[in-house]
């Protein structure tokens, strides 16, 4: 039953440099270069070696950008991750202070994150009617609450055996910090999974149209569950490395991280409404914000000014698609007339 008209449909995708540049990721790369030029201008000490040295402080959050992209692509949101960082960081200290060997400390921390993720995922998939914003608001308060209880009146705990956790904050060959390598490897895995595998495609399908995805045989709740579990796991990675750099945890550890991570993703072109954006965009956006922070810090700009810049970038970024849509619509209207 070949088409009666014999019409042929093109299946070749022409990729031109212009097209690439006009994607969100293309624009971000341009912005990335511009930001670096800007940074070099405002700060004398903005050199590669210096950036490499200062970066680890900020990189722990990058762990969470990766699974948060999954969650946002699904059309969900998870605002409990900052609290998971706090809880797992606290636990890491306690486990170590109790005399556990280092592998057990790491496993304990990751297991705690995993359990948090399983809790979030179970609630989200058992009660899909509930907005994820509300359920993770509940767990956000609970997870930090548990950390507060275990921290007691003092509100903080120190990692006594600092030598034990040192390996996580060292530099390989005295130049490349371990954390950069770990982030890099995990980021590549997460990116490949999201952009190139059937699981990643399923996430986009769910975020674009949950019902159609379900009708097409995508196991919606399983995918959501996996995303939440990964989120919890990566939040514990963040908690672990944060502890490695701060040698302790307190009740405000990780506070506000959830919003910073979501902001990086959204700035990277991943819409909070689901189905849009790539992790490449999210990672570049995260790097841009991190580099800006480093340079502004070096230039002794009021450190809080970075908040204003991040906020403004975010709002401009989310306004652009709408403006572009309006222009396209007007063009089409004119064409029809």
């Amino acid at each position: 039953m070949a088409g009666k008209s014999g019409r042929s449909i093109n299946a070749e995708q022409k990729i031109t440099a212009k097209k690439l540049l006009f994607t969100w990721e293309g624009a971000l790369i341009v912005l990335f270069i511009l930001v670096n030029i800007f940074n070099m201008n405002i700060s004398q000490s903005y050199t590669f070696a210096n950036v490499l040295r200062e970066m680890p402080k900020y990189l722990a959050e990058m762990f969470m950008v990766l699974p948060m992209a999954y969650i946002l692509v699904l059309g969900d949101i998870d605002i409990s991750v900052g609290s998971i960082v706090c809880l797992t960081g606290t636990l890491t200290c306690y486990i170590s202070n109790a005399g556990a060997p280092f592998p057990i400390v790491i496993l304990g921390c990751l297991a705690a994150g995993l359990i948090c993720g399983v809790i979030n995922g179970s609630i989200a998939t058992s009660f899909p009617e509930l907005p994820s914003m509300i359920t993770t608001l509940g767990t956000q308060i609970i997870f930090r609450g548990i950390a507060e209880i275990s921290l007691g009146g003092g509100g903080s705990v120190a990692y006594n055996n600092t030598k034990q956790i040192m390996p996580l904050s060292t530099k390989l060959g005295k130049t490349v910090p371990v954390i950069i390598l770990v982030v890099l490897v995990i980021a590549i895995i997460f990116t490949v999974v999201l952009q190139l595998t059937t699981f990643g495609r399923s996430l986009y399908a769910i975020g674009s149209n949950k019902t159609s995805a379900f009708y097409a045989g995508v196991d919606v709740q399983k995918c959501r569950f996996i995303a939440y579990v990964l989120m919890g796991l990566m939040a514990s990675m963040c908690g672990l490395f944060l502890t490695a750099y701060t040698y302790g945890a307190n009740t405000t550890t990780g506070q506000g991280f959830e919003m910073e991570v979501i902001a990086m993703c959204v700035f990277g072109g991943i819409a909070s409404t689901g189905g849009k954006g790539t992790l490449i965009g999210g990672i570049i956006a995260g790097l841009i914000i991190t580099l800006l922070r480093i340079a502004l810090g070096q230039a002794n700009v009021n450190s809080q000014m970075i908040l204003v810049i991040v906020g403004a970038l975010l709002i401009i970024a989310v306004l652009i698609p709408g403006i572009k849509g309006k222009i396209d619509e007007m063009k089409k209207l004119r064409a029809a007339a």
Partner: peptide, 20 residues
Amino acid sequence: VAPIICTMGFMYIWRGMAYV
């Protein structure tokens, strides 16, 4: 713009302005 994203942006901006 999705309310949570827009207000997140201003959450940073106004907090920053408070410091400024």
